[in-house]
């Protein structure tokens, strides 16, 4: 189908975009890369009165390292995450994840800010930025505020973003060195919506996790930072310890069923991902089979 009629405004600056959003409230939608918004409009799931196109705003572009912080502009496209030397060095998890987002033609348009503001529970980047302990920078006519990634996602397509606010950047500790990363997802076909996925960051000392953040996606209404990680931290991971963590994980999950997978299948896949993740990060292939039970 084709989108219903709407008005279109090409924002000339962030200030101009904020003025337009303030004037139109929730009748306006921000157009970034459009790779989720346009399908929703073409399917008539959304019919905004006004599109505020921020696509041309140079002030929302670019990746930079300031002090120990990696700052990624909202308009950074998925293909830019794949190409950026700064991302490869300081947040390689984002690069790994971006390769799983849809297909090349989509990655050439879709943006980091758009993906986060859209908050699809099956998408990769929300889980990654939660794992990376990122902060989302949001601007309103009254000024700027910063929201922890872990507080930003509120449900399916729901975030802490208010209608008059614009997501302008994402900041995260530049911690490529000294950390180990894991990213894997199950999908029917490369680039399809994930059925279950896991993004992780770990610090490993002497074969033990001294820090472990496990971000599951597509297994709940928002990315889940699993508390099960605490069962694996500062202990010698044995098959029994891992089985205990997997049991904790299952209790934490509340996955939906859909035409791709039942809740039980998603719980199972999340456990498989957990075992693979721990086995890969600790270089202990013996842990992957979960043979202790």
């Amino acid at each position: 189908m084709k989108a219903a009629a709407f008005a279109y405004a090409r924002a000339t600056s962030v200030v101009n975009a904020l003025e337009l959003l303030a004037a139109h409230g929730d009748k306006a939608k921000v157009l970034s890369g459009g790779q989720s918004l346009m399908p929703a409009m073409n399917l008539r799931l959304l019919s905004p009165d006004l599109l505020v196109d921020i696509g041309g705003l140079a002030e929302l572009q670019g990746v930079a390292v300031k002090g120990g912080t990696l700052v990624i502009g909202a308009l950074t496209r998925h293909v830019d995450l794949l190409r950026s030397a700064e991302v490869a060095l300081h947040a390689p998890l984002l690069r790994e994840a971006a390769a799983h987002i849809a297909h090349p033609a989509i990655r050439n348009r879709g943006t980091l800010g758009g993906s986060l503001a859209h908050a699809d529970p099956a998408s990769e980047l929300p889980a990654c930025i939660a794992v990376l302990d990122a902060t989302i920078v949001v601007r309103a006519p009254s000024g700027e505020r910063r929201i922890a990634a872990t507080e930003f996602f509120k449900g399916i397509y729901e975030t802490a973003l208010l209608p008059q606010e614009l997501l302008v950047a994402v900041e995260m500790p530049a911690r490529g060195k000294g950390s180990a990363f894991f990213f894997q997802e199950y999908a029917r076909r490369h680039g399809d919506y994930a059925i279950a996925g896991l993004a992780a960051r770990a610090t490993i000392d002497d074969g033990r996790f001294s820090d472990l953040r496990l971000g599951f996606f597509a297994v709940g209404d928002r990315p889940l930072l699993a508390a099960a990680a605490s069962k694996l931290t500062n202990v010698s991971v044995t098959p029994t310890v891992l089985a205990d963590a997997a049991a904790t994980l299952v209790d934490e999950l509340d996955p939906q069923g859909d035409q791709q997978a039942s809740p039980a299948m998603r719980r199972h896949l999340a456990q498989v991902l957990l075992r693979r993740c721990v086995a890969a990060l600790l270089a202990r292939p013996d842990l992957e089979t979960g043979a202790a039970q």
């Binding site: 279109y8 090409r10 157009l31 459009g34 790779q35 346009m38 399908p39 073409n42 599109l51 196109d53 696509g55 293909v79 090349p104 033609a105 989509i106 050439n108 348009r109």
Partner: peptide, 15 residues
């Protein structure tokens, strides 16, 4: 578009 492949159904002519 500008040398990179895109979906023309997900882009507006005005963009």
């Amino acid at each position: 578009v500008d040398g990179e492949i895109v979906r023309s159904c997900l882009m507006l002519a005005v963009q």
